[in-house]
Nucleic acid binder design. Sequence first.
RNA 1: GCAGGCGUAGUGUAGUCUGGCAGCACAAGGGCCUUCCAAGCCCUUAGCCCGGGUUCAAAUCCCGGCGCCUGCACCA
Length: 561
Amino acid sequence: MKELRGKIADITKRRGIYWGAYEIYGGVSGFYDYGPVGALLKKNLLDIWLEEFVYSDGLLFIDAPAIGPDSVYRASGHVDKFTDYMVRCTSCGHAFRVDELIKDFVDNPDLLTPREIEKIIEENDIRCPDCNGKFGKVEEFHLMFSTTIGLDKRGFLRPETAQGIFINFPTLYRINREKLPMGVAQIGKAYRNEISPRQGVLRQREFNMAEIELFVDPEEKFNEELIEDIELPLLTKDGVELKINAKEAYKSGLANGYIIYYMQKILSFLKNIGINVSKIRFRQHHREELAHYSKDTWDCEILISNGWTEVIGIAYRGDYDLKRHMESSGADMRAFRKFEKERKIRINKIVPRMEILGPRYKAAAMKIARAMEDMEFEENTVHGTLKIEVDGHVYDVPEEAYEVINVEKKVSGERFLPHVIEPSFGIDRLIYSIIEHTYYERQDTGYKVLRFPPRLAPIKVGILPLMAKDSLDSIAREIMKEMRAAGINGYYDESGSIGRRYARADEIGVPFCITVDYQTKEDNTVTIRERDSTKQKRINKDELKDTLKKLVAEEISFEEL
RNA sequence: GCAGGCGUAGUGUAGUCUGGCAGCACAAGGGCCUUCCAAGCCCUUAGCCCGGGUUCAAAUCCCGGCGCCUGCACCA
């Protein structure tokens, strides 16, 4: 399997799919450049993602900033939970993770403050394991990249794109005309300062994500019609591997209905982009490995040469994020749920008469009025002069300064925090998986091919003259111009033998090649060669543009020609 | 971060032990040839990870750094 990784590393670099970034300066691990082929591959992949997850379900698509203020990531829990503490030896300078050093002295290192940690180190005289030197002050090691906003405001590069959606929930909810379920999608880069990222593009410090936050009313009954009659490959938290029908999985309560819904969509999506369906499974997280925000998570794992690899996560985040942002920002992050039937409630309320309170209490009037409004009492128990305490003063409010109302009020609904189901796609891992799963070598020759589906293929067509002479070349160039004018990404190649040129195209997954040969000059036909079958069909040059468009959009298949 | 291994044209490698002209294959570019799947021939481009030291002389020996790989740790 290691051999496969080597071959893929070769092809990705040589043919311009991706490579390690900042190469001329020695490289920085965890950063990659997508080259001309890879950048288009990613773009096409995201287009398909938009079609299959966003347009098809009418989701809202947004684009929020990558840098956020301290307050946002404090509220989200990342500042606390995405941090490790470390100490540096004052004599040799080596750094150590605190929890490793003190784990023999305390039960739960994660709960301590930096001060407490310093105290424990001093009391137990913990020394540097390397040189026995003394330790300095406790420092934070953030998995988040921190930066400065303006002169001195602390900011972070987002470790996930999700917060940009949660923060905007009230606005988006209004734009969606206050309807749930509401799905919001975002594509963008996220940043994590991994200590030692390896495994190539599978673990990067700057990576591409496509995320959906589906906001639902936890009390609303799930629409069972969303569940299809298909088989899901699951691995539950108890280690049970099973293939189970989606309907059955839903009925048995194995996972939230929307999680199952997304499992179905993900299966079909992965199939469409060239992933081998027999190498997909959904693995449920154990309690201990759940992220700080999640109640239940299912990873979509794909089997590649590294083993089963998490590529997509479907997390049930509950109301964690909205709640935290509501508490810390004070904004109302709730949605409104209409009761089936209007409810009637009795209201016993004091209505202050401001025209009397105002002149009488001046500046304190508003506060007194609020306090009166907030009073709770039984019907017919309030009359006469009221003693109202505000800021330590007790005011006597006479009867004529208020009115008591006892009314029956209609209540049509209530406010609540929606729950969130979050499918989160690791785009770079997906791209790597696609490359591994679409890679094959021809049986007879061993030549390398990437079997990209036409819709995904970065380059759709190669246009080749059989010979670069006898005006075959000029006809081919003419065709290339036509293709480009029609918005089909193609290239012209006359170098080397025809077989060599086909092989070149195969390596970057070009699905179709047009060859201009001598017969073209006689009857105005060219051949279309399909990558995987290497079969050719003759087609009139004038139909080329329309035919190719359909082939590339996968509206027709090559066999149907 | 720790331990071990490694770092030579775009890619894969030889040369390193034992210091003395940096070589091969593939790829790429140009040309000849060629009537459908990497044919052949000629030419060309292109490299010792970075810095310091030892030496008449360093890809080779020493030191430091950076990067990569494997394992541990970390990470979803």
